[in-house]
């Protein structure tokens, strides 16, 4: 992988940015996300998570450090009107 390879396409975060976050001390998926925004975009890390875990492993961090970030509401992007239901008086 080249340094300018885009690891997270939603937020446009490159391999180089991931590596520099690891250098600054980020060693889990959640920490990489906070340092770089990788995984914060529309797909919520569905695509880039596995790549980032591989990069972490290459840097010597054990898979148990790579617990996935909390899965939280919503599971997929949802329009607010769908979420609150059409019966609601808004």
């Amino acid at each position: 992988m080249k340094e300018d390879y885009v690891v997270c396409r939603c937020e446009e975060i490159t391999l180089q940015e991931i590596k520099s976050a690891i250098k600054q001390g980020a060693i889990t998926l959640d920490e990489i996300k906070k340092y770089t925004r990788a995984g914060m975009g529309l797909c919520q890390g569905r695509i880039c998570s596995t790549i980032i875990i591989e990069i972490l492993k290459e840097h010597g961090y054990l898979p148990q450090y790579s617990a996935p970030p909390h899965s939280r509401i919503p599971v997929r992007p949802v329009k607010i009107w769908e979420y609150i239901g059409e019966d609601q008086d808004v």
């Binding site: 919503p74 329009k79 607010i80 609150i84 609601q88 808004v90």
Partner: peptide, 27 residues
């Protein structure tokens, strides 16, 4: 779920255009 629902309902109430915006994450 219940609090998030109240929060987005409130947002749509003050900003009607927000109804058509998607939520992607909560914390």
């Amino acid at each position: 779920f219940s609090t998030i629902r109240e929060i987005v309902k409130n947002a749509a109430d003050f900003f009607p255009f927000m109804k058509d915006v998607s939520i992607i994450r909560s914390f």
